[in-house]
Structures are given as structure tokens and as C-alpha cells.
Design a protein around this nucleic acid. Structure first.
Lengths: 218, 218
DNA sequence: TTTTGCCTGTTATTTGCTTAACAATGTGCT
DNA sequence: AGCACATTGTTAAGCAAATAACAGGCAAAA
């Protein structure tokens, strides 16, 4: 009732940055560093030291004046906030290039976040393993999700199947979906949805390139 | 000096939505629709009709009271704003699974945004074609970028090569980079940079799943 | 003809987040 | 000891974007 609700009110952007801080910190730790200043963290990501301090203030972690933040401690504090104690099981739905890329990204990096299943409709892929993870038929979605206690699905199927696959995932009791399909999906209130559309981002970059070159050309 | 600077001040989020509106509108057009209401557009994406109208107001496009917006016209207006007349040439740097996935996504969808080259260090891939696009050696980056007039690079190399590859791209005169590497890069002021980190997003989804289940369990 | 309802387009308010400003503190140098 | 300085932690101001509120208009129904 108290502490958890407190973390729940952390800004979304802060949550994202905490994840990035942690990864940067782990690299520093591997390099033998024990302490770090806010402006050093800020330099790795490209933000300001003020923002780093503000984020750390929000999670209630204090550094020391002369040495900065204890890297080991800070990693643990961040992990305590963003990791689930039990770990969260992930499925990649759609084993095309994007699905396989994500599989590789995530495999073994975060031990509290494990990809335990892939799904596809392609008979060639079903039953095979990729990076040690079995690929199941989409028809077995509900069964496998329930059996392996999968909470999070990464949706990387072709756009035309987005809607129906999302529905299946919801019916199977999934708790969060990360939709990389260019087509927006709808989910009930209690399922957390995050969507990212690569084409949109690409067009945005193209737009600012265009703007910039028009500016120069005048 | 006048019109272009005006569009330059459009909110970033509006630019993103315009790209999405356009894609949704093109599908509607294919389905034989000629006009559409703001709330219909809002339904396809998951936003409110107010926001749609506000975005369209910002770009100065007016609908009619009884029929809504003319789909064909609106597509043209949006295209005029976000597309570069000459078209913008794109390179995919790093032909792993993610690079190939992006290649497939973009190929042929946007004729004003064309992937004209891939790059990799793997000898097996160099010289080969994928989806009709030649894969070059990273060593030839500068030469090829100059020759093919490539303005935009999608960075999908392994994280350990992010920094050095980004530097090469900047030296080669690239105007915009879309970095899908988990490692932040630095570019000069005049290069537009957009970064997206899949692991961060995944951890964010996991965090909100965790929050939600703790909330239920009390 | 008047009224009702459903749209659009614009202005005002609120929210969420970033940036700036500054007080507090401990360390090393003189 | 006393001063200069780099760094943290917090509060206040500023910005960008989303949401709310509402004015205006046309078309069909009464």
C-alpha cells in the first residue's frame, strides 16, 4: 500500500532511464569502478547531471558528497525497483527477423527477464529451437502461456495478423504486450500495452533531415 | 523562410502522428472510402478525436462539416509536409536479423524513402543482395554514402561497434541516424539523432506488469 | 421555420516532465 | 583554522504536449 504505490508514481521516463543507468553502471562495475558522479552517468547517456540527480532523488537513493554514488549499491536499488522478484517470463510472438533479433538481444542479458517461448505459424519453424528457445505453434498459444506462466509478449507478427494475435494473447491471460507491429492494437485496461512503430520513427528522422536541409539552402 | 519554418515548429509528437494518420488513411482509401471523420481516425490509432483535429489544425487542413476530411487531399497535404520532394536515400548499417527486418519493413512501402544500401563486416554477406539491395563492406561506407547520396542511416550493428560506426557515418556526411543499438552515441549538432532501445522498453513493460500484480495482491 | 444533433476549429486549462537556481555539505589547500 | 571548490539534494520556474471547454455551422428532423 505504501512503498509500491510510491514507485508506481515514478514518471515513465524515469523508469526508462533507470533501466539505462543500470546497464551503464554494470559496465562501469565490470571495469573496476566502485563510485560514480552524476555527471559521469549523464555523460554516458546523453542527458544532464541534474536529471540524473533528480531521478535518483525520486527513488530515494543518496550518494556521498566526495565520491558520488556507490555503483554496486545503486545497481541493487534500481534492480529492487524495476525487477520482479520471481522474474517475468517472456514470449516472442512471430519468429521472423525481428522476432529473432529480439530473442538474441534479450537472451541471457537480464536474468529476471527470460524469453521462454517463441510462436509462429510457419510449419518449418514449429518444434525447432532458436537460441535454446522452443518455437511453438500459435494454435498452442493459450496452452503454452498458461503452462510456462508467461506474462509478457513481444508482438512481431506481420501487421495483418496484429489484431487477431493480440486478442489471442489477451484471452490467454497475458499481462503486458510490447507491440512492434505497425498496426495499433486494443487491449483491456488491465493489460499494459506499449507500442513502437519503426516506420513512424524513420519518417520522423527523414522529416527533420528535410527541415534541416531546407534551412541551410535559403 | 516562412512556410518551412512554420512546419519546423510542429510538435514532434504531431509529426509522428501525421505519419501514422497517413498510413491509416491510405488503407481507408484502398477500401474505397473518400471521406473520414476525426473520430474515425482517432479510433484507428488509439487517441482522441480532439487530438486529431488539433493536429490537422496545426497543419492548416480543413475538413467539411458534414462529411469530415477528404482522404485523398489529406494524404497529399501530409505527404507534402513530411516527405522530401527528392526522396531520401537510406542505408541499413549492420545486416543482422534486425537490419534485415527493417529492410523488409521499409522496402517499397514509402517511395520517398528508399533503402539503397546495406553494410556489414561479414565477408559472407558483402557483395550479396538482400531484397534487391546490395550489401557493402563497412570499409566502403564513406565512398558508397557519397556516391549514392545517402542521407539517413539506420544503425543496427552490435553494441560494441556503435561508437566507431557512428563516427564513420558522421565523417561520411550522413544527415540523420536512427540508432537501434543499446548504446547511446554522440553526433554533431547538425546530424539529427533518434535513439531507441528495445531492452529499456521491455524492462519498462515488465515494471508495469510487476506494479500491477502487486497492486492486485494486496 | 425552428429546433436538434453532430461535426469542426480554436482557445484555455491542466498535466507531466525538464531545466534552472540555489542551499547544504564535506574535502583539501593555504 | 579558514577559504575555495566540487558535488549532492531540493525547490522553483519554464516548456511541451494533452485534455477540456466551447463557439460556430450545416443538415436533417420536427
Amino acid at each position: 500500500m505504501k512503498i509500491k504505490n510510491y514507485y508506481k508514481n515514478l514518471p515513465h521516463k524515469t523508469i526508462e532511464r533507470l533501466s539505462q543507468y543500470r546497464r551503464a553502471l554494470m559496465i562501469c562495475l565490470d571495469n573496476g569502478k566502485t563510485h560514480i558522479f552524476s555527471h559521469e552517468i549523464a555523460n554516458i547517456q546523453h542527458i544532464t547531471s541534474v536529471q540524473v540527480r533528480r531521478d535518483l532523488m525520486l527513488i530515494g537513493y543518496s550518494g556521498t558528497l566526495r565520491k558520488g554514488y556507490n555503483i554496486q549499491d545503486l545497481i541493487e536499488v534500481i534492480s529492487h525497483i524495476i525487477d520482479d522478484e520471481e522474474g517475468i517470463k517472456v514470449a516472442v510472438v512471430g519468429m521472423g527477423n525481428l522476432g529473432r533479433a529480439l530473442m538474441k538481444y534479450v537472451r541471457g542479458k537480464r536474468h529476471k527477464l527470460e524469453v521462454v517461448a517463441g510462436f509462429d505459424t510457419n510449419e518449418e519453424k514449429i518444434g525447432k529451437e532458436y537460441k535454446g528457445v522452443t518455437c511453438y505453434s500459435i494454435d498452442d498459444l493459450e496452452k503454452v502461456i498458461d503452462k510456462l506462466n508467461i506474462k509478457l509478449a513481444i508482438l512481431t507478427v506481420p501487421a495483418k495478423y496484429s489484431t487477431e494475435t493480440a486478442e489471442k494473447l489477451v484471452d490467454a491471460g497475458i499481462k503486458g504486450i510490447l507491440n512492434y507491429t505497425p498496426k495499433p492494437i486494443r487491449v483491456p485496461e488491465d493489460v499494459y500495452l506499449e507500442e513502437y512503430d519503426m516506420i513512424t520513427t524513420l519518417e520522423k528522422v527523414a522529416f527533420y533531415i528535410k527541415m534541416h536541409q531546407e534551412e541551410e539552402g535559403e
